[in-house]
Design a protein around this nucleic acid. Structure first.
Lengths: 205, 205
DNA sequence: CTAGTTTTGTACCGACCGGTAAGAATATAA
DNA sequence: TTATATTCTTACCGGTCGGTACAAAACTAG
């Protein structure tokens, strides 16, 4: 009943590290998506059995959502940090190049789990699908707000339509996730990022 | 054993139109993806039962692939026709605006089944996934070839990197499919298309 | 009408789905 | 040691998965 405290200290100790297990679950969801990842896939990768999974993470939905949080906060995440760059140009450049480098990185599944984790899916997955759509829209909203701030700071011309600019940026990044799934390399995606940047003359330096 | 001839003329006549059934199957695969679409979903939408489905279309994999062919050849498909435009500018413009209009069209599921039908999926779906990746790459190849032809015709400067240009175009279109899934309207996607076009000065008129 | 051919509906197959009940195992607290 | 708390393993639940066997139904050819 009590919310999982840091150390239980009483009762049989847990034989696995929940954070590591969550990273393993993320890897499975990333590769197979919500629908494609079975509990057997998950428990095998996590090295635990189903009752442990359910007592620790709730159910498949909640496990997925917790894995997504790990995804957003992992060391090589680029989206959040990019927003902290000082100028609009640096924000957009870091975001595009970060996606190019990261989506095609061979040390983990290709693309982005938030984009491809539950795109077309069963009705069972519709709650997760909606959660991912919300995350994508929130991401675009953050970019939009950041560009509006830049516009207020005189970093972007007042005549620029930043709403469309943010949507264009989101579109290119989401497309790059598909390209990574197609097998595009980081170099190829970086070329796309460069070209995409050139469509944004209003943020150039 | 004999390949399905136009009219059987002997035996019990088929009680449904295979082409219409295929369109219904396409609608289900489009909305739910390969993994998310169950045979129960499919047979219900198609108005037939499983033995009819299997005798007519083979199995789930083959049904999906046949539905994809219907998708590519349906009246409102924009990709193939765009390639036939006379100039590179018109090709790219028609393709971007076609995607913007079509992906968000409310008369059918949002986005593109070839992009989102089997992106992250189970191992069962891996054959279909590979087939879709191949289709996307073939599409990009066709664009590349078309742009190369335009370059040979003097329609695009010889200095332009058409390989990257084609990849960029593919990226934007694939991103627009995700945007359509996010709920973006045709108008919003058209604004993105306009902005994306501006990144291609080498094809302007 | 009969024989032959094809499709139909029903009922079923083994395997797997997400999820859980129950008791053995392992720790701390007294 | 004993009581208590927590996690472990095993075995199982009803439901659904993709796929099929079989016989009744509906047609044509003769």
């Amino acid at each position: 009943m009590s919310e999982s405290r840091c150390t239980a200290s009483v009762g049989r100790p847990r034989a696995f590290d929940p954070e590591i297990a969550l990273e393993k679950a993320l890897d499975v969801f990333w590769r197979k998506g919500y629908d494609g990842a079975s509990l057997a896939d998950l428990t095998e990768a996590m090295g635990i059995n189903k009752p442990s999974l359910y007592s620790t993470f709730g159910n498949k939905d909640q496990l997925f959502l917790k894995a997504i949080e790990v995804y957003e906060k992992r060391p090589c995440a680029f989206f959040g940090p990019a927003l902290d760059e000082p100028t609009a140009h640096q924000v957009v450049k870091k975001m595009l190049y970060g996606a190019a480098t990261n989506f095609a990185d061979k040390s983990h599944p290709q693309g982005c789990v938030i984009i491809q984790g539950a795109l077309s899916c069963s009705e069972t997955a519709s709650a997760v699908k909606e959660a991912l759509i919300a995350r994508r829209q929130e991401g675009e909203q953050k970019v939009r707000d950041r560009l509006l701030r830049a516009q207020a700071e005189g970093d972007i011309p007042a005549t620029t339509n930043v709403v469309t600019l943010a949507r264009y940026l989101g579109t290119v990044i989401q497309g790059m996730a598909i390209q990574a799934n197609n097998g595009a390399t980081s170099e190829e995606l970086t070329e796309v990022a460069e070209l995409a940047l050139s469509a944004m003359p209003s943020i150039n330096q």
